[in-house]
């Protein structure tokens, strides 16, 4: 277990520096005028130019710039946006509603995916299985830019079942529709992986043993088979989080939820480069940390890895 954690940590450190370096390099490297790139097409004033040069240490070497960028990231100093606000304050303001939305989406998606995945695996080839397979295919093919506006139009505006927008202090009910939209991004893959995994595990020898032990069918499936089947599903959570972050940008933009994604989307429109880079960098770090945690969870679920 110890060796596993150490190896993972080392890999994570490497990935961490690699990923942040890529984000940084993409933003600043080889720019004729990095400041104009940050500000996009809008004109920048001389004072902004000075502030940005100082902020990003543009008159120093590339690696030094990267060093200051990383230092800022790790100490929570994300600089100021082109509108003059502190980015860390904007982030502090924005993250609670996004976390609420994402957690709601994950809980909904995981509950439905695991339950439906197990049932279609047990009754594979049956009506329920075929309907879910087709449904997941359709959901899988629905880009979030289609799903979010259409869901808002149909359930929020036309039918009026859900509030079509949400505020910063939104209740869970206000966030339910956007969370469903966001959750649908990951539900199809999770369901399919659960199903395949349960189907494979149902054929495993240890299931026969569990039945020979006179255990109830419920216990065989929900204790013996499920624990094994969840291993590949858990590894998906890490990847899924990346999808959720991406999806949150579109979903929050559509539903006007003033979270992290909304801020990124608005920063793109207003061409506020520092804001985009600041928020994206923080999300990349969160993504990496969560993936590390998922790896550790994976080890907790599968003893064969723990004792490697």
């Amino acid at each position: 277990m110890f060796r596993y954690i150490v190896r993972r940590l080392l890999q994570m450190v490497l990935t961490f520096f690699g990923a942040t370096f890529v984000v940084f390099a993409l933003t600043f490297a080889n720019q004729d005028d990095p400041l104009q790139a940050l500000a996009g097409e809008r004109p920048i004033t001389e004072s902004q130019r000075l502030a940005l040069t100082e902020r990003y240490h543009l008159n120093e070497s590339f690696l030094t710039q990267y060093w200051y960028y990383m230092k800022g990231l790790l100490t929570g100093d994300l600089g100021t946006s082109l509108t003059g606000q502190k980015i860390s304050a904007m982030l502090a303001n924005a993250w609670p509603v996004t976390v609420k939305l994402a957690l709601l989406a994950i809980v909904i998606a995981a509950t439905i995916a695991v339950t439906a995945g197990v049932y279609s695996a047990i009754k594979r080839g049956g009506l329920f299985d075929n309907v879910t397979l087709i449904a997941t295919l359709v959901v899988l093919a629905m880009p979030i830019v289609v799903l979010a506006p259409l869901a808002q139009l149909i359930f929020g505006i036309k039918l009026g079942w859900f509030p079509p927008t949400a505020t910063r202090d939104a209740s869970l009910w206000d966030l339910l529709l956007p969370a469903l939209v966001l959750g649908s991004l990951v539900i199809a893959t999770e369901l399919r992986v659960t199903r395949t995994s349960v189907v494979e595990n149902l054929r495993a020898d240890y299931v026969r043993t569990a039945r020979a032990k006179g255990l109830t069918r419920r216990r065989v499936i929900w204790v013996h088979v499920l624990r094994n089947s969840l291993i590949p599903v858990v590894t998906l959570i890490g990847v899924d989080l990346g999808g959720l972050m991406s999806g949150a940008i579109v979903t929050e933009k559509i539903f006007n939820i003033p979270g992290v994604g909304f801020n990124i989307a608005r920063a793109i429109t207003t061409e506020d480069g520092p804001l985009v880079v600041g928020f994206v960098s923080v999300l990349v770090i969160i993504f990496l940390v969560v993936n590390l945690l998922v790896d550790l969870l994976y080890a907790a679920l599968d003893p064969r890895i723990r004792y490697e």
């Binding site: 043993t209 020979a212 032990k213 013996h224 624990r227």
Partner: peptide
């Protein structure tokens, strides 16, 4: 179901795959 293990029990060929890998 109650007959199994209580009255008639069985052991299998390949104990590695016949035991559940994720439980002690």
């Amino acid at each position: 179901r109650k007959v199994r293990a209580n009255r008639i029990a069985m052991i299998f060929q390949d104990a590695l795959s016949a035991l559940n890998p994720v439980y002690t």
